[in-house]
């Protein structure tokens, strides 16, 4: 398979992986972002606890909604930070000068963002399960977390690259992101809730299909548009 600028697929994937590894290495050395996301997530859950009075009767029904709302808020922190890092010291210009397909940069960043979201999920879900005594250990639910986070990162990375070049930056991202995120958010909440209630798979498939479709369309749009967004 030949891609833009005559690079082979192996080289393309190597670029994606290099960007991913760079982002993880940067984060591993500072651990700023993950620490902030984690504490923020816990605080949001705490706020929900008092806002919704999560007692035993209510929490089994609203857990999926609370968790996804928390992920959505924490995710914007991650997205903003991941692009702000590139803007500082003009690191993004350096990346764009590299003789590689630019969409590889997009996928590298998107996978890094996905990774951070999943780390937060892996740490938060057991904590939530313990704090509220709900069983979240359900393979279907975990699959929904994976699919939803991927859709989120795919569109989020694209819009964060846009927002970071605007005047109001961090302010702009949630405004741009959340309207386009609502389809994935609604379906993820619905699918999660269905899995946690132990419904049969026939009821859940439509939601899963939507999540998969979203997870394919958004990266495709990112692949097409990333070049236009970073071009000077």
């Amino acid at each position: 398979m030949r891609l833009k600028r005559g690079l082979s697929l192996a080289q393309y994937l190597a670029t994606v992986f290099a960007i991913l590894r760079k982002d993880l290495a940067v984060e591993w050395r500072s651990r700023q972002l993950l620490a902030a996301m984690l504490i923020f997530t816990l605080l949001v859950i705490l706020i929900f606890n008092f806002a919704l009075e999560l007692d035993a009767r209510v929490r089994s029904e609203v857990s999926a909604g609370v968790l996804w709302a928390t992920f959505a808020f924490a995710g914007t922190l991650g997205l903003n930070r991941s692009m702000a890092v590139e803007k500082e010291g003009k690191a993004l210009d350096g990346l764009l000068l590299a003789p590689v397909d630019r969409s590889a940069v997009y996928f590298g960043k998107a996978f890094a963002n996905l990774f951070f979201m999943l780390v937060v999920a892996v740490l938060i879900l057991p904590m939530y399960a313990i704090l509220y005594n709900v069983n979240l250990w359900h393979s279907g639910f975990l699959l929904v977390v994976l699919l939803g986070s991927w859709g989120y990162s795919a569109i989020g990375t694209l819009l964060a690259t846009m927002a970071i070049q605007a005047r109001s930056r961090e302010l702009l991202l949630p405004v741009l992101l959340f309207p386009l995120l609502i389809p994935v958010f609604v379906t993820a909440v619905r699918a999660s809730s269905f899995f946690l209630q132990g419904l049969e798979l026939t009821y859940i498939w439509p939601s899963l299909n939507l999540l998969i479709a979203y997870g394919l369309i958004m990266p495709a749009l990112g692949y097409m548009f990333f070049d236009f967004i970073v071009e000077e």
């Binding site: 569109i155 846009m162 605007a166 741009l176 386009l180 236009f228 967004i229 071009e231």
Partner: peptide, 11 residues
């Protein structure tokens, strides 16, 4: 104009 075009397509 460029960002507007992209966002209108996404939207």
């Amino acid at each position: 104009a460029r960002f507007g075009a992209i966002y209108s397509i996404l939207g």
